[in-house]
Computed example of a mutant assay.
Amino acid sequence: MVYPERFSNLPAHAWPRLRALLDVHEGGGEPIHMTIGEPKHAFPAWVTDKITEHAAGFNSYPPNDGAPALKEAICGFVSRRYGVPLDAESQVMALNGTREGLYNAVMALCPETKAGGKPAILMPNPFYQVYMIASLSVAADPVMVPATTESGHLPDYHSLPDGILNRTTAAFICSPANPQGAVASYEYWRGLIELAEKYDFRIFADECYSEIYRNEAPVGALQVAHETGADPDRVVIFHSLSKRSNLPGLRSGFVASSAENITQIKQLRNYAGSPLPLPIQLASAAVWNDEEHVIENRAMYVEKYDIADRVLGNVPGYASPEAGFFLWLPVKSDEEAAVKLWRETGVRVLPGGYLAQDWNGENPGQGYIRAAMVAPKAETARGIELIRDCLYPQ
């Protein structure tokens, strides 16, 4: 049996690697799970009622691109949040979570060749793994650009040579960043949009952590493109209810862009996509229309930021996250630190190297561990204190 070569050199995925690393050891206490970014705050209680209210919709095939009520709610969110007017019929599409959209946008929008050669797709390193898989699926070179302390934990795409930029068809950016919590400024977005205009590529803005922040709401890519008068085809944004509303199991998100980009993405969905069930779509509309629960949720994360700052603030190299719900903590060896923490305390974290790939012989994630602050406040505080006592003794 012959299999595709494009996936033949993939490393093991982060989660099986983590289990292989830790499960051979006995945990040193009651487990505290700080590995996966799965929110554990309560979602709005009325979501279940909304699904039940529209349960008859499970008896019908759902609208492929999103029910009118859902698309209107999405446009309302984008308008309130970013001041950008969108046409519900032509500029948004509902997604089964952002991962589906991030993958299929590459399939639908990235050409097979550019500048007479193999295309390149840019991504931060560390990165969300779907960026790499999407690139390989369209036979593009995934160009992993380090997002380190020196670059403000965001990739410096301007530093790439013309030979790569001339072949670039798309650039991924996650802001707020997973795992570092860095936020792209207005100036960063404007500079990237100018680079995309110069070298003719699209920006895929993964903004699923946009509603979890400490002080000021992160600026959005579509907002900057709108305000600077950029080509509307240049930016594609992706959002989700998973983090914003503590609904990762709902698998509900959206993609928004120009009408031409969305037409191409919808066409792919017509042939190869799977729309959200109608009751999920209508419940999602209600969630996008409500901001009260988002404000309450954000306040709980701010309390956790404060706990982390208080407990870890004296750790050399500690960087308080601007947004998101991860701690990106410096260590000498990521795997050794994760094993030590598990064996001595029962706290499970993710080695940073599992979220990155070698670039010029170095893996920019290997000097870090990622700890997700998703559990209730008391459990999160206990986990952070155990991390300090185990890995950073005074």
Rank of each mutant, 00 (worst) to 15 (best):
D233E: 14
S252H: 14
N246T: 12
T148L: 09
D200H: 12
E211R: 10
L241A: 13
L160V: 14
A256K: 04
R167N: 08
G249I: 07
I203W: 00
F238L: 01
C174T: 15
E260V: 14
E260H: 12
H153R: 14
G249C: 03
W189G: 00
Y188E: 07
I173V: 15
E194H: 14
Q223T: 09
E260C: 09
V235D: 00
F238R: 10
S245Q: 10
E211L: 07
P232E: 08
Y213K: 05
E194L: 04
D206T: 03
G163Y: 15
K198H: 11
F238D: 03
F238I: 06
S252E: 05
Y209P: 03
Y188I: 04
P179Q: 06
E227Q: 11
V219Q: 02
L222E: 01
K198D: 08
P218N: 08
F254W: 11
S258W: 06
Y186N: 05
L154N: 01
P176L: 10
S185G: 11
S252I: 02
A259D: 08
G220N: 03
Y209G: 00
S242H: 04
E194A: 15
S257Q: 08
G163C: 09
T169C: 10
L247S: 11
L160C: 11
V255C: 13
G152F: 03
G249H: 10
A205E: 06
E227W: 10
R251A: 12
A177F: 05
Y213C: 11
F172Y: 12
R244P: 01
E194I: 02
E207N: 05
A196V: 08
K198C: 00
Y209K: 03
F201Y: 01
I193M: 03
